[in-house]
Structure formats: structure tokens, C-alpha cells
């Protein structure tokens, strides 16, 4: 069996808020293989955002082991974690998080800046990524000149530009109408299928979650269920 793209083993995360310890995750174990398409579901406060932040190396578990591409993040410096994030993970946010004064191309190229890629290479790869999400003709547009669906596609191109193993999408359709939301889901599905990039989707919309091949339910910081569609389909790709 191949190395999992992401693996959490008995992970807890406790925050200290105004002197009181609040545990957001109680011993969650989750393994996500390369090329998977997973939805994480749960009501607000269930710990899905916390899990997402841990999987994306934005945060560290209080206890438990977290491996990104087989590498244990415990003991990594902040800088090493940032590099790991840059290389292995792509993020898509509910509110797009695009730089307003920056062209689509430069927004997409941003992760490559922190890799020290040359301007020329950044431009080339950003143009490729934009073409992959069907926005080859929107290179020079700023976010304000694009529709919501287009902005989210720019953000997806940005998540892909560095060739990560996993894209973490936090409510990617939350700010879009149903139709556009499904277009974005079509795009994510296609990228998952064509590029083999694992997609982890956090959502509370059941019909969006239905489109994933695996659904993980969280409640009160614990994993409630982990269901997969058609087990034989795994590895078919």
C-alpha cells in the first residue's frame, strides 16, 4: 500500500481560552490516501475546522501523531512546517482569500514566490494552472473583475500551482449559489480524477458532501462515522 497523503493518529487539540482548556478534538484518527476524495461533515463546533487546520499544517496537535506525506510534523520548526505546507498542501477557502489588487496570474503564482521560483517560471506555471481551471483568458483580471465562481476557480488554480498531494477545501461552495457551487465541485472532481490530487472537503451541505467518495462525520470533536462509496472503486483510477 502506498504512503498515505495525510495521516492523523489519535490526535487531540486543546485550546486554552481565558484560562480554561477547551478540547476541540478528542483522539481522532484519520488516514487519507493519495487520490482520495473525502468530505468532512459536521455541525459547527464539531471540530472539523480544527481538523482541517491540523491536516493543513497550520496548527499542531496537542497530542497524537500527524504525518504529512509520511513525515511526522512533531519536532518540525515553524519554518519547516511552512515549507511542508508549501510543498504538500493546497488550500481553498470559503471566502476565496484572493489578494484584491493583484491579477489572477499573480494570485495563482503566490505559493511559488515562497519557493524562490523565478518570475518567468511563476508566470508559466500560473498560466498553466489557470488554463487547467478554464480561466486561461482571465490572466490579467483582478478578483473584483471576476464572478464569484471564477474567483473560486482562481483560488483552486492557486491551490494546484505548486503540485501538492492534497487540496484542502474549507466550505469551497459556501459563498456560491447552488449552480456555481456544483460547477466548482465538477472542477474539483475533474482535478481529482485527472491529476490524482487528493481532495479533502469540509462542508455542512449534504448534497455537496454526496459528491465525495468518502464522508467522515465529526461530532463534538470525535469521529462519528466514516463511510465510503463502492469500495471496489478505490484504486480503479
Amino acid at each position: 500500500m502506498s504512503t498515505p497523503a495525510l495521516e492523523a493518529v489519535d490526535v487531540t487539540r486543546t485550546y486554552r481560552m481565558e484560562g480554561v482548556d477547551v478540547t476541540a478534538l478528542h483522539g481522532v484518527s484519520l488516514r487519507i490516501d493519495e487520490g482520495e476524495f473525502v468530505a468532512i461533515l459536521g455541525p459547527s463546533g464539531s471540530g472539523k475546522s480544527t481538523l482541517m487546520h491540523l491536516l493543513g499544517c497550520l496548527d499542531r496537535p496537542t497530542t497524537g501523531v500527524l504525518r504529512i506525506g509520511g513525515r511526522d510534523v512533531a519536532g518540525l520548526s515553524d519554518a519547516a512546517l511552512a515549507e511542508l505546507r508549501n510543498a504538500r498542501v493546497g488550500f481553498v477557502f470559503q471566502s476565496f482569500h484572493l489578494l484584491a489588487r493583484t491579477s489572477a496570474r499573480d494570485n495563482v503564482a503566490l505559493p511559488l514566490v515562497y519557493r524562490g521560483a523565478s518570475r518567468k517560471e511563476r508566470h508559466r506555471r500560473a498560466a498553466d494552472a489557470l488554463a487547467a481551471v478554464g480561466l486561461a483568458h482571465r490572466l490579467a483580471h483582478r478578483p473584483g473583475q471576476l464572478s464569484g465562481g471564477e474567483q473560486q476557480r482562481v483560488a483552486i488554480a492557486r491551490a494546484l500551482v505548486g503540485d501538492p498531494g492534497v487540496v484542502l477545501a474549507d466550505e469551497p461552495t459556501g459563498n456560491l449559489d447552488t449552480r456555481t457551487g456544483h460547477d466548482v465541485m465538477d472542477l474539483l472532481e475533474r482535478l481529482n480524477r485527472d491529476r490524482g490530487v487528493a481532495i479533502v472537503l469540509v462542508t455542512h451541505e449534504p448534497d455537496i458532501a454526496e459528491r465525495a467518495r468518502r464522508r467522515v462525520h465529526l461530532r463534538d470533536g470525535r469521529m462519528e462515522s466514516d463511510e465510503r462509496d463502492d469500495p471496489p472503486e478505490r484504486g480503479e483510477r
Binding site: L58, D78, A79, A82, R85, P111, Y114
Partner: peptide
């Protein structure tokens, strides 16, 4: 955002 995309503290 920049940090999420891989900016280190010193960047």
C-alpha cells in the same frame, strides 16, 4: 493567507 501558502515567519 501568505502563511497558509508557505510564507515563513521571516518571509
Amino acid at each position: 493567507l501568505r502563511k497558509a501558502l508557505g510564507a515563513r515567519q521571516r518571509d
